[in-house]
Amino acid sequence: MKIMIVDDSKAMRMIIVRTLRQAGYGDHTLVEAASGPEAIGKLSKGEDPDVILCDWNMPEMTGLDLLKRVKVEWPKTKLGFVTSESSDKFRSAAAQEGAAFFLCKPFTPEGLKAALSPVLG
């Protein structure tokens, strides 16, 4: 299984990797991207993650815009949000576009596992 982490914060990518390991996903292949365009670049070059963990607010491209693009061009890839946005407005928008999950920062290994289990099995 392969997991892609898309977040413009290096610290947050590090925390997500650490939490994935704590949640039991240490044997999965982890791919990182610091922006939506970088994620698209990697997907275009053949990276085929089973799931993308994506921030919402990023400078060049929002996570929601990345989701819209992924849905069309890589429909087998699931995308879920790991974000500091917490209001229902954002949850609804994510659900409407077919996000796999919506996890608020900060999150626990248990919370991350609960979000990922239905996606990764």
Partner: peptide, 11 residues
């Protein structure tokens, strides 16, 4: 600080 934004948020 970015994560702290949710301290100020409610529906």
């Amino acid at each position: 600080f970015n994560v702290c934004a949710q301290l100020f948020v409610s529906n």
